[in-house]
Design a protein around this nucleic acid. Structure first.
Lengths: 309, 309
DNA sequence: ACCAATCCATGCACAAATGCATATCAAGTA
DNA sequence: TACTTGATATGCATTTGTGCATGGATTGGT
């Protein structure tokens, strides 16, 4: 044990370092201010104060935006190290938090968030009013390690060893279209008819196209005249007769406006995984939500499917 | 380039994290306050605010001092990562600083700091009044990577590849004692007489003892009834006749109160190395002091030795 | 058992940082 | 050219944080 360590080196203002980091990463003071929930002048003053404190010019100010100087470029590398460590602190901190009062962030697909989660959240908040649920509905996979979310509900198995994952159930999806649209197609007795059909595609359409062609449909990009990254918007388009889209059977079968566009095809099948960071899972409230979803999600999905029949 | 990154995880107050880190490492709020140059109530409030912000109890308060909780123990590991990164930031920052006005910290042995450095610093400050020189006189080797000092003047070759080092000169040391003390010893014509002599030892005496016995003196710990970690205090004891001590020849030969205690022994010889961190040495003012010492230190040592003859 | 030393908590006056509103500037567009 | 958008700087009222002085509590030694 040393009697007296030297802390003068770390005695600069760490919050200013944070301001510098976020500003450099976001590219502008305004964007950084939005990200941090602070005012833009505050960030500007913090960055300038850091420049004076370290006696280093970090940014070149020319009217439109800020540009890192070579010195700033080198320094931001090291400050990024602080930021990554800070992320780990926050991660461990939410894990250590033993309060059942507070926020829990769940990320999942838009469809799951819209059709399966609402009744679950309602029941959860009824049982535990102190828990505030934040839902991040996105088809992109959020990084649990960075605490962009506490819990993820996905159809791909998480590979990261830092994550605890549980397979909840098996889900299926099919192709649907409105009655009017299907009547518009001449004949519906073979796979070949779909070659002329219009499909609603995703923004990144390759996986979807490949999945359809693996079933022998023989489609090309020409079959996707409308694309949208938001699955819920797609579904509205399908219901309004703009073309054929994919949807989980629990939702598609329950929707009276549409019917199965290709009953002769087997359904897409995939597993539903529940995942959380190992650290976070030591938090009482995250653990509580995790266990709750593990129990209730399969039931809720079964309920939804039953109502459809 | 991502449109919107999630910074909410790092949005806690980083200065509070620093307060927590230093408090945990130093063991008390008061010690941490001293280290950081802040008031103790400030640190106490920052730590408490962090506990509320993260909703984690970090310390157990019982009257005398603070004790880390298990949660705090785990969190301090991650905060230490922030601290280490912060140290690298400070290191790189002083390297990027191109101002010749500001502080430069030099670490060296107490003897060098006391007898060789003063005229050099005087001349340096005469030429460059904007430079503020901080001298850390210590026989422990300070870590240049942690920016405990900018420049080191040592007798061991630095091995770290991150350091730039330059061999300045060769220095020698001998054993000295006061005339009165030497007269008190019966006969001084052989090495065996020293077996009964009293030596002034170091706090960690093993290297010194080994160095003497390598010359065939055959001493034991019994020959070191007085020990002191401070070499300058040792030297005062030697001058006052309390025993035999070691000193560089440039100083020992110039001191009229003492004389060479063992002229038949060869002098200890060692190299003097000047070292600085590679990053820091790109700073204009550190570079300036580095080059100044490289030029002037050998001259100053020669001057001191000449005055003694 | 007392005393000294050391530590943490609290109250209060002051200094510092923050947010809001606003001015200013640069780049793209009709 | 004039207009719109989105950027950074500045002034000011307010909130927040900080330091100093003090009180209360515990440990260690005489």
């Amino acid at each position: 044990m040393h009697l007296c360590m030297d802390w003068s080196a770390v005695n600069f203002d760490w919050n200013r370092a944070r301001a510098f980091l976020v500003t450099a990463e976001e590219g502008s003071l305004s964007a950084a201010a939005r990200s941090l929930g602070m005012a833009q002048p505050t960030l500007g003053r913090q960055v300038r104060a850091l420049e004076e404190e370290l006696d280093v010019v970090l940014f070149e100010r020319h009217g439109h935006g800020l540009v890192l100087t070579p010195s700033g470029l080198e320094l931001v590398e090291h400050v990024r190290g602080m930021g990554e460590a800070a992320g780990r602190v926050a991660l461990a901190a939410t894990g250590q938090s033993q309060s059942v009062e507070g926020p829990v962030t769940i990320t999942t697909t838009e469809v799951t968030a819209a059709f399966l989660l609402p009744p679950l959240i309602s029941k959860l908040r009824q049982n535990h009013p102190g828990i505030q649920v934040d839902v991040v509905a996105s088809n992109e996979l959020r990084d649990l390690r960075r605490r962009e979310a506490d819990i993820a509900l996905r159809s791909v198995r998480p590979t990261d060893p830092d994550l605890v994952a549980k397979k909840l159930m098996r889900e299926s999806a099919r192709l649907y279209a409105s009655r009017d649209y299907l009547r518009g197609l001449e004949q519906l007795d073979g796979a070949d008819t779909l070659k002329e059909a219009q499909f609603i595609g995703f923004e990144d359409n390759q996986p979807f196209l490949k999945g359809l062609n693996d079933l022998g449909l023989g489609l090309t990009e020409r079959n996707f005249p409308i694309r949208c990254g938001d699955h819920l918007v797609q579904w509205e388009m399908v219901k309004r007769g703009l073309g054929i889209g994919v949807m989980i059977t629990a939702v598609g079968d329950a929707e009276p406006k549409v019917e199965n566009a290709a009953p002769w095809l087997p359904a897409f099948e995939f597993d539903v995984w529940l995942a959380a960071h190992r650290e976070v899972n030591t938090s009482r409230r995250v653990r509580l939500v995790f266990d709750f979803l593990a129990d209730e999600f399969p039931k809720a999905a079964a309920n939804l499917a039953a109502k459809g029949c």
